[in-house]
Amino acid sequence: MRKTLIAIAAAALVAAPALSENISDPEEILTARHGYMLLLANQLAPLGAMAKGEMPYDAATAARAAASLAALASVDTSMLWAPGTEEGAIEDSSALPEILSNTADREARFAELTTASHTLSAAAGTDLEGLKAAMGAVGQACGGCHKQYRKSE
């Protein structure tokens, strides 16, 4: 048992530098950030399809998606906003430099998304009308940040 622990610790030590090297590379961080946004979109997809009437309302599916969204929204994303990943510094980034530096406001906006997602997860499992009503606040949380910190196309 002790040997196993030592082996794990040794492996962790070896792995640690590689890991920190990965997350300091702006390309990797940008890929991770875009992936994170895609994860959010994936959870929104069934909720939106139900709101639009493209998919029959199913309380369990809706509640699961909304709960996943809430979980994702409360993840610490600070490492995704590292210097060198802003628009202009790297290709395919549309993040204005302000979102990297305005840490407090950025975190407040993610907190807003978390709150709205929790409300959505409570409402989504109840009925379709509740789901539709709660989608608005989630959209506003996304849009509020995008309108301020994302470069317009």
């Binding site: 939106g48 608005g136 989630v138 996304c142 849009g143 995008h146 309108k147 317009s152």
Partner: peptide, 15 residues
């Protein structure tokens, strides 16, 4: 209603 596009991106800028 919510600002979500069919890809679940959201409206930005003045929109």
């Amino acid at each position: 209603t919510s600002g979500f596009t069919p890809d679940y991106d959201s409206a930005g800028g003045h929109m």
